[in-house]
Design a protein around this nucleic acid. Structure first.
Length: 164
DNA sequence: GCCAACGTTGGC
DNA sequence: GCCAACGTTGGC
């Protein structure tokens, strides 16, 4: 079991919106980056933990946590001709873009702003804090997961203890 | 709005 | 396969 950080602009899709979805679930559509695609296709597993990160917002930071429900699903937006995420090169029989389904679990209370993540010694190596890191799907270490939950006031980790 | 960092595109 | 040009991300 592994942990991940997923970025979303709250103006486009927020953690609050996820929590209002039927079953609190949504397909993580519209990712158009190969490295992120590969994580969703090859590495993520049902049951993995997700830090839901709000980017391009004031302030940016972790809004809540979720879990991975299903992985390596076909992103339908690549075939939607009227979508800005339409990919004319993608083939039905071999779709280029994949997604995962996630389920919202718990909001951070309080919200964990980026500035607080930066101030935390134990998070120095966290991917989202590294200069130039723009990837929208990032692996998170178990220690980092634990620290962020603590900062976000989530006392009881809702996910089963991971083991390597 | 700025701009550094990074990814993608396309000519050669 | 190189790499310049261009587009995007995302914090500030």
């Amino acid at each position: 079991m592994q942990y991940w950080l997923l970025k979303s602009e709250p103006g486009v899709y927020s953690f609050e919106r996820l929590m209002r979805e039927k079953q609190r679930r949504t397909g993580w559509e519209c990712v158009r980056n190969y490295q992120a695609r590969n994580f969703m296709r090859d590495a993520m597993q049902p049951g993995d933990g997700v830090l839901f990160y709000h980017s391009s917002s004031e302030p940016p930071g972790v809004a809540g946590i979720a879990r991975v429900v299903r992985t390596n699903l076909v992103d339908p937006t690549q075939f939607a001709a009227d979508s800005e995420y339409f990919d004319p090169k993608s083939k039905r029989e071999d779709p280029t873009w994949r997604m995962v389904e996630i389920e919202g679990l718990t909001a951070c209370e309080p919200f964990v702003p980026l500035s607080l993540l930066r101030a935390e010694a134990g998070l120095r190596g966290m991917a989202v804090l590294q200069k130039g890191q723009r990837l929208s799907v990032q692996p998170v270490r178990p220690e980092e997961w634990k620290i962020v939950l603590k900062l976000g006031g989530i006392r009881a980790d809702p996910l089963p203890k991971g083991h390597k």
